[in-house]
Design a protein around this nucleic acid. Structure first.
Length: 637
DNA sequence: AGAAGATAGCTTTTT
DNA sequence: GCTATCTTCT
């Protein structure tokens, strides 16, 4: 063991240290909320490298790109080396293999990755091809169902409900025709290749000998199958997770994979990380008294040296407006006593709940950030330009072609597009029509852009496209909307600058890859002096000194769609647990007697989860009888 | 090609 | 009851 390595170990508690020192063989690290999961994983990677394990043979898998970036940062700082392991998402890792091996399944190497929107368009096409009139308006839900089944990891389409099977098969056929993968197929097709070609499997088993997986409780079956296969030779697989925090069952994540880990890997060593560094003892005890009502779980008891802290505050309001007003007042009061806006987060079960807070915060001019609201890459103007890139890169991508052929307007109308669609986009069929001139011009433009793609660095190439299209003019920046869209385009160019260090060809490929996989610009900025609003789901992995959870009511949390099913109910409880354990110092749980929801006033009972908190850990307040004085002018901002 | 009319869906969300 | 999306009308 090296000296630098010893120095690092001093930062760890005994159980973390044991987990980090255990280098080879299967290992399961069950870690509670705030117990230093990611830190332990990061240090284990560093320890592996310190023990002369070749970085390129190590694969670290995280739940999001953002988590991957953060870990990369941490490792780079501690190691001061450029030679890093693969650190990324399952999808990113699968893509790395597919770039080399997709040809085995009949894909060309310039394949595309279809995002959700493009995939839905393709499902629509499948439905039209099959003439299934009663599915005409349900491409969205059909796509979601297909995706759910794919993620279950059932590799036989006969398991699909009969009504979906035909659409599924047609959709898969279309994907191949478009030379494209949807998100799910990145994983599934990689798995298929490794199963089908033993020599390819061997190659990657040799190449990658250490696997470490974060947030293992939210892994789904195909993802696990993929890593299980690759790790089966060397058996160096480390997983870190907390079954109590598994909250993505609705998209086929399965925490039982974590609970069954020892069955699959009988030699596995188990480590429990139970010391919490985040919250007060009261918050830990209160959240434990809730989560302990779940039957399907491991048992562990978290502790902290942080002291008892304040009691959990449970408050009752007349309606959601009063609830929001009170929370806002409370925040302002605390700001005056020295807290700052980024000490607070308001966490809710459903996105619609953010509305009442947004209205209030806007009128009071309180700066806030709403996480997961508008998605940069789903904006029309971004998709327009990205579709040009995709079509230039992969001419089989007719979904992108259809999107751009008349943007900006070039007099290629609906009827023309219909004819082209019916003829596999063969422009020649319109040879004798006046519109053919327009089509030829379009082809000429694409050829011009394509040759530019081979010569220019990424940001210049992008600027060249935008100029050639006269896109700024098309957006009409004299309108407020147009100006905002133009600013988004400039942001896209800004992102492209990061790819200028590559050759034109590589830069283009990497840029496309990164905007396909990095859907959400990570818009949460913990340093911004803003109040944070987000769903309980997006709060996973984060922490704040003071947490408000509004709407702690039956039919919100637990959500009404999960009330009558034990499995779903337990997931709701875990979700609530995740919310509670985000708090470092203070936790406010609020509910209203009446709430405007789905167009009607509804009366909800207080959530059963409130009853599950031990009486001696909470204080109840009834604010329905108190006259609130909201008129006082706030001069704070 | 854009506006008006019709209809579905309405929990959570990353890739 | 609101909104996003698709269809049909002008």
């Amino acid at each position: 063991m090296t000296n630098s390595n010893l120095k690092i170990l001093k930062d760890l508690n005994p159980s973390q240290k044991q987990a980090v020192l255990n280098l080879s063989g299967p290992s399961l690290i069950i870690a509670g909320a705030g117990a230093g999961k990611t830190k332990t994983l990061t240090y284990k990677v560093i320890n592996l490298i310190a023990n002369k394990i070749e970085p390129s043979s190590i694969v670290v898998l995280t739940f999001t790109n953002k988590a991957a970036l953060e870990m990369k940062d941490r490792i780079q700082k501690l190691l001061k080396t450029k030679n890093l392991p693969f650190i990324g998402t399952f999808h990113g890792f699968a893509l790395k293999i597919l770039r080399v091996e997709a040809k085995n399944l009949g894909y060309k190497k310039n394949f595309s990755i279809f995002d959700e929107g493009e995939s839905i368009t393709l499902v629509k096409k499948a439905i039209n091809n099959l003439n299934l009139a009663n599915f005409r308006n349900s491409a969205n839900s059909v796509y979601k169902k297909i995706s759910f089944y794919k993620n279950k990891g059932v590799d036989n389409e006969n398991y699909l409900p009969a009504s979906l099977k035909d659409i599924y098969l047609e959709y898969e056929k279309l994907l191949l025709e478009h030379n494209a993968f949807d998100f799910d197929n990145l994983i599934l097709k990689t798995l298929e290749i490794l199963k089908k070609y033993p020599e390819i499997l061997k190659k990657y088993q040799k190449k990658y000998s250490y696997f470490l997986i974060d947030e293992f409780q939210d892994t789904n079956s195909p993802q696990y199958q993929l890593i299980k296969l690759l790790a089966s030779k060397n058996k160096n697989i480390t997983v870190v997770g907390d079954d109590w925090q598994s909250i993505y069952g609705f998209r086929s994540a399965d925490y039982r994979i974590l609970l069954n880990f020892q069955k699959d890997w009988p030699q596995a060593k188990i480590f429990f990380l139970e010391q919490n560094y985040r919250s007060t003892q009261n918050i830990l005890d209160a959240s434990y008294s809730v989560i302990s009502k779940n039957i399907f779980r491991t048992d562990k008891k978290l502790f902290t040296t942080n002291g008892k802290g304040e009691l959990i505050k449970v408050l009752k309001f007349k309606d959601e407006r009063e609830e929001a007003l009170w929370i806002k007042e409370q925040i302002i009061k605390k700001l005056k006593s020295g807290k700052s806006l980024n000490d607070f987060a308001i966490l809710f079960r459903t996105n619609v709940q953010s509305r009442v807070f947004e209205d209030l915060l806007i009128s009071e001019k309180i700066p806030y950030q709403l996480i997961g609201a508008f998605k940069f890459y789903q904006r029309k103007e971004i998709q327009d330009i990205v579709s040009y890139l995709r079509y230039i890169y992969n001419p089989n991508d007719k979904i992108s072609l259809e999107r751009i052929i008349n943007i900006p307007k070039r007099k290629i109308g609906e009827s023309t597009i219909k004819i082209l669609k019916d003829n596999d986009w063969n422009f020649e069929v319109l040879k004798n029509k006046p519109v053919f001139k327009q089509l030829e011009n379009f082809n000429f433009l694409i050829r011009k852009l394509e040759s530019a793609s081979r010569e220019l660095p990424m940001s210049s190439f992008l600027t060249f496209i935008i100029d050639s299209l006269n896109y700024k003019n098309y957006l009409d920046i004299t309108t407020e909307e147009g100006l905002e869209r133009w600013q988004n385009i400039k942001e896209l160019i800004g992102i492209a600058y990061n790819f200028d260090r590559f050759s034109p060809k590589e830069g283009f490929e990497n840029f496309l890859e990164s905007i396909s996989l990095l859907q959400e610009a990570d818009n949460f900025d913990k340093n911004a002096n803003k109040l944070t609003l987000m769903t309980l789901h997006s709060a996973k992995g984060l922490e704040f000194p003071i947490i408000f959870i509004p709407g702690v009511e039956e039919s919100l949390i637990p959500h009404e769609k999960s009330l009558y099913n034990q499995e779903n109910l337990e997931e709701e409880r875990r979700l609530f647990y995740v919310g509670m354990t985000r708090a470092k110092q203070e936790l406010y749980l609020t509910y209203a007697e009446e709430r405007f929801l789905n167009g009607e006033y509804r009366h909800n009972e207080p959530s059963r989860f409130l009853d599950e908190i031990d009486e001696n850990l909470k204080e109840n307040f009834d604010i329905t009888e108190v006259e609130l004085d909201y008129e006082q002018k706030i001069e704070y901002f």
